[in-house]
Design a protein around this nucleic acid. Structure first.
Lengths: 159, 159
DNA sequence: TATTGTTATACTCTATAACTATA
DNA sequence: TATAGTTATAGAGTATAACAATA
């Protein structure tokens, strides 16, 4: 039995809460991700740092001297895709590619002082923004959410 | 104080669990979304239905005679982006564009019998796949997760 | 003036394949 | 043979801007 047609002009979430989609974890993850992304982009604002560049910067600052192939594996993307990200961080003066003694194939990624500072500032902005955006979730609810998302992250990708 | 460098060859999640990223809701949402998407794609397999086409099909079947502009608002994408989606559903024979008496600008989207059947089958596949993929979450945990994700979905996008 | 559907266009993110230099 | 970094290329997904038809 079809549900009543949705009005053309008003399309809130509540109007579609009977949809099959509403019970799918994948759909809800995607929609929530879109909301979170809008917050991230606002937090980065003038810096123009994209999520993936921020992620790479974070990991490089946390694990200095990391190789690009390691970074790509941690981020879950291909080596080839990381090149542009590292190029951007280098162009911003946030890292240096340095040779690794003992294996001339590898180039270690080393954060500069500017990179470290930019990261500290960006992290603060993102954390402040998330605190504001998700203020209506209690600390306990946030921890529950993080825990459940981590459980999903640890699942095997379905190839 | 920098954390110890990650080994090049082994890059499990546990090795990076000290990263700042691990406490960000946005980062965890994104990574969980990637896992869920891999499951969705496997479920769709031979049908080749993408997530957004499945979503549009679902909403059109649930709300027959919906206009494209309504659908685009519900999905949270631009009208222009929906054209290719509707084109694909029409090419598959899953819908008809029908004129609407009283407003000749609008074309109602009407699911065909093939569209209804394809959707029923696709939905079953997705539900079965999610049940399998997320089996290690209890029914209560899944409900908690869905509830928290819906809370986020209802938040204002940060423009 | 505003809205619907549409086209043209561009940008971001990601993947695959192939190359080079090393190991 | 295998790996690290790289380039070229292509495919999703999405957005903006403009247009014709209609309201």
């Amino acid at each position: 039995m079809p549900k009543p047609a949705v009005k053309d002009t008003i399309t809130t979430v509540s109007e579609t809460e009977n949809s099959d989609l509403e019970n799918l974890i994948g759909y809800n993850l995607k929609r929530a991700d879109v909301i979170a992304k809008s917050g991230f982009q606002q937090a980065m604002g003038d810096t123009g740092l994209s999520a993936r560049v921020f992620t790479a910067l974070s990991l490089m600052v946390t694990y200095p001297n990391i190789a690009q192939s390691s970074l790509s594996r941690i981020m879950g993307i291909e080596r080839s895709g990381l090149v542009a990200i590292v190029d951007e961080l280098e162009a911003r003066g946030y890292l240096k590619r340095a040779p690794v003694p003992g294996d001339r194939r590898v180039q270690a990624l080393i954060p500069t002082q500017a990179g470290q500072q930019a990261y500290d500032q960006a992290l603060t902005r993102v954390q402040t923004q998330e605190a504001r955006q998700f203020a209506e979730l209690s600390a306990e609810e946030k921890q529950t959410l993080l825990g459940l998302l981590k459980r999903i992250r640890q699942m095997e990708p379905m190839t």
